[in-house]
Design a protein around this nucleic acid. Structure first.
Length: 191
DNA sequence: CGCCAGATTGACT
DNA sequence: GTCAATCTGGCGG
């Protein structure tokens, strides 16, 4: 497996969000591995972004991490759900990419144990759903995602698909720019 | 300590 | 489509 290098994350969050589509998310769980293809992401920036956790009132550690080292997992809770982000930005800047939906490809039975769903399409098609299915919580916060030894990391994946974009979902105050990206017509994208 | 918002979800009309 | 439950950290008293 080819693990994505740290330099992959040293770009504008918007670019990283796009490049992350089609890549493989690997969750190591003891001797098991859960794998999924990333099909939907969103980009967030620093204090200039009103929807960012760097905006006023957000947990302190989120702000610090958004401005800190790249290629680290950033996990925090919103509406009783853990949300999974990767810190990604250019040097001296701030930002992160939120993983909003994935397509399970390995360890589906294990995922079903963590989260019951009517069908496989409902298992990981939302930011809070996938963190439960993949057993991602606050304990993974700060983990380096460029090492195969880590609890979570990202690998090269599929390449031929069409990227679509839209405004970000659920955000009160969004920026003008479209910062949500997803694989067009993929059944695992959130609604 | 109580109140409130928030990058959500699931159940229901 | 609507709506309430869910948890955590920040903020005011």
């Amino acid at each position: 497996v080819k693990v994505l290098k740290k330099s992959f994350y040293q770009k504008d969050p918007k670019e990283v969000a796009k490049s992350l589509l089609g890549k493989i998310l690997v969750r190591r769980l003891g001797d098991k591995q859960l794998k999924a293809v990333i099909v939907e992401t969103e980009a967030y920036y620093g204090r200039e972004d009103p929807a960012s956790r760097a905006a006023l009132g957000a947990p302190k550690y989120c702000v610090e991490m958004l401005y800190g080292d790249i290629a680290k997992a950033l996990v925090y809770m919103v509406h009783a759900n853990w949300l999974f982000n990767i810190v990604a930005h250019e040097p001296g800047k701030a930002g992160a990419v939120l993983i909003r939906a994935v397509r399970p490809i390995e360890g589906i039975e294990e995922m079903t144990k963590h989260r019951k769903a009517k069908n496989v399409f409902d298992l990981t098609n939302g930011p809070g759903k996938l963190t439960r299915a993949l057993a991602i919580d606050r304990s993974l916060n700060g983990v380096d995602v460029t090492s195969q030894e880590s609890e979570v990391f990202f690998c090269e994946g599929i390449h031929s698909f069409k990227i679509a974009s839209s405004h970000r979902i659920g955000v009160r105050k969004d920026l003008k720019e479209k910062l949500r990206f997803f694989i067009a017509e993929d059944p695992f994208v959130s609604r």
